[in-house]
């Protein structure tokens, strides 16, 4: 397996003109518009994957924390979706949704679903029983308990899930280049096809930079919304 990949990489490198520089800066300035456009597409697809995934996963997790019997089927379904390889998923959807955005968005959402469901549920489950009991004993209604106690206390773990889902979505979006909707992945594909290193390097560097920036932003968000977690030494649970 690894041997085959290395052979391919060697073949690719052999076909590149040895005088070709790794990055042609003129290409970057000539293609600025496209880089920005691809970047927006990448951002858009990532947001769709994480936001839609969260909108589905969050109520699922709340339901599961209230009614334990939901846990099994919900974990099973999201688990099965997670095991389908991205490329296979896209080709399975092609006859149904064609070359549309949906064909790309559905697998991305499906992957974030499992991560977000599991983390949200783990976060809700990790809320101290004593805190919940005291809250009920003081007269919180069950809705107040959820929104004022359980969700805020689960936030560090929920945000940890969002970080993982976001970073993996950013990586997966590049695969959608196969359908011409891959954001920065498009440049990677283009570079490989044309034995031209510049777009390949641009695609890789920008994808990675995007993932790092998104992760840092989420860390910042967590610090901002859970000032108490630092002192409490709250454990974050990652799936």
């Amino acid at each position: 397996m690894i041997g085959a990949v290395l052979q391919q990489v060697a073949a690719l490198v052999a076909q590149i003109d040895p005088d070709e520089p790794l990055v042609r800066w003129i290409w970057i300035s000539d293609n600025m518009d496209e880089i920005v456009g691809r970047g927006l597409q990448h951002l858009y697809l990532t947001l769709v994957a994480v936001v839609v995934g969260f909108v589905i996963a969050f109520p699922m997790a709340i339901l599961a924390s209230r009614h334990r019997w939901v846990v099994r089927p919900a974990t099973w379904i999201s688990g099965v979706l997670y095991t389908i390889p991205a490329i296979a998923f896209i080709f399975l959807l092609l006859p149904l949704t064609g070359l549309s955005l949906t064909t790309v968005a559905v697998p991305l959402i499906a992957y974030s679903l499992l991560i977000l469901f599991r983390n949200t549920l783990a976060g809700l489950d990790a809320v101290d029983r004593d805190v919940k009991e005291a809250a009920l004993g003081m007269g919180f209604s069950s809705r107040q308990l959820l929104w004022r106690v359980e969700v805020p206390l689960a936030l560090p773990v929920i945000i940890a899930g969002l970080r993982i889902a976001t970073v993996s979505a950013i990586g997966l979006v590049t695969v959608a280049a196969l359908l011409g909707r891959g954001g920065f992945g498009q440049f990677i594909l283009e570079g490989v096809d044309r034995f031209f290193p510049t777009p390949l390097v641009v695609g890789v560097v920008l994808s990675v930079a995007f993932a790092i920036v998104a992760d840092l932003l989420l860390v910042g968000l967590q610090r901002l919304v859970t000032p108490w977690a630092k002192m409490a030494g709250t454990r974050t649970v990652a799936t």
């Binding site: 101290d128 004593d130 805190v131 919940k132 009991e133 005291a134 809250a135 004993g137 106690v149 805020p152 206390l153 859970t226 108490w228 977690a229 409490a232 709250t234």
Partner: peptide
């Protein structure tokens, strides 16, 4: 209650 059950985020 025994372990106070104070809300850690408040």
């Amino acid at each position: 209650i025994q372990h106070t059950g104070l809300m850690p985020h408040r």
